[in-house]
Design a protein around this nucleic acid. Structure first.
Lengths: 226, 226
DNA sequence: TTTTACAAAAAAATCGATAAAACTATAGTT
DNA sequence: AACTATAGTTTTATCGATTTTTTTGTAAAA
């Protein structure tokens, strides 16, 4: 499921624009593209074997995701990073997700509860790293399951718009994680934190769940000082 | 300042893409373009006297603003509206702006206070309608000053990201207001509400200010049932 | 050495045309 | 009359080439 279908759906599905969009997006989030790198249309054109229009369109789309900076008349570049920006992402994330989690706890039904449990279970079974023997190599499956878990927690908040904002912030945050490198990356107690968040959530202990979630984010945030 | 320079900066500045973007954006927010209207590249091309590429790029940008819907392989259309969507905008707006206002009150300095006072004063001096003799015709200057006032209130929240989200929601909300038509539009006590919000804000009465702001939004929201 | 001016090169923005896909209308079939 | 297949039409998506704008490099002037 993971690799092949992912590649297939990326490579064969939809317009060239959306393919370029997905590819670029992934490369930026995964940190393969250095922040600030100039994104020359001509180069990308060659890289993906497509014309200039789809490339520009994809870049325009990425601009609104906060992953690409655009300056009128002088092109696109991979969004630059900064301590301040990261701090802002973290802050905004805490605010929005806290709200979303609280609402989710208020409104969520049984089906929602179960989807949270399931997402947690799946996440718990996936190794975080696929590096052989000690070496850390981020596991894309874990990455997906982790995102899904956090999405499920807040999925019942009742606001598609809020969820979209959270999604965007999540991706930006992952980008910073990836850029920080494997050095600071693996935190061993993260899985336990997930469990505690889930526990409080299922108990409908709003305040406790919110506190734990926000602490969880702050915790991961502390790592990235560079 | 208002008309001429606005026209000038729209018509002569920047790339064709951004000009098309600004024009379309305005037309959609002002409600000149019916929700669901097909946005055919060919038509827009002629309308603005430009090529297909800038048109598509502008449309891509508007997509991420939530003002245009795009369906892969079958083009763009003016974002559809719905009761649910409006309710969501209102809800999300209350959540985000409440947070933003609270933070702003916590962090704002004297300069910020003064900018709020100034924005309020300017708003208070501008008539809401420019329709002659009873007829209601929305005043673009008022519209700008109103937006500025609400921006200033939360400007000191310390999170550019949050401000961007609020901005986007504000615009979407204005769109609904404009679509609802002049019928339901003018609320006479709105100016008084602004004053009360400002008062509580300047007094750093966090809870009170937040309540008033949210009530203010809910109030305007009640009008749009159709 | 720093500044300025200008020409050459590179890149961005845009255009006009073509290929591909989706829609429409029509005619034939059940 | 309802359904299906198909040819023709419209619209979208994409390309390759052209025009503008920015950047770079070099040499003259201060």
């Amino acid at each position: 499921m993971s690799l092949i279908s992912a590649v297939e759906s990326d490579e064969n599905t939809g317009s060239l624009t959306s393919r370029a969009y997905n590819n670029l997006r992934e490369d930026i989030i995964e940190g393969k593209l250095e922040p600030g790198t100039k994104l020359k249309v001509e180069e990308l054109r060659k890289r993906y074997g497509i014309g200039a229009s789809p490339v520009r369109e994809a870049l325009s789309l990425l601009t609104s995701d906060g992953l690409v900076d655009r300056i009128d008349q002088r092109g696109f570049r991979v969004a630059i990073v900064s301590k301040e920006d990261f701090a802002d992402i973290l802050k905004a994330r805490c605010w929005l997700e806290e709200r979303a989690l609280r609402e989710s706890i208020k409104n969520g039904d049984t089906e929602w509860e179960e989807s949270v449990v399931l997402a947690f279970y799946r996440l718990s079974r996936e190794p975080r790293s696929i590096g052989s023997e000690g070496a850390f190599l981020t596991n894309p499956d874990w990455e997906n399951l982790h995102k899904t878990f956090h999405q499920k927690l807040i999925a019942a908040c009742g606001s598609p718009i809020l969820l979209e904002f959270c999604d965007r912030l999540y991706d930006q945050n992952v980008r910073y994680r990836n850029l920080a490198g494997s050095a600071s990356y693996p935190r061993r107690d993260s899985q336990l934190e997930h469990e505690h968040i889930m526990q409080a959530t299922l108990d409908r202990a709003e305040d406790l769940a919110a506190t734990r979630l926000v602490d969880h984010y702050r915790q991961t945030g502390k790592f990235l000082e560079k």
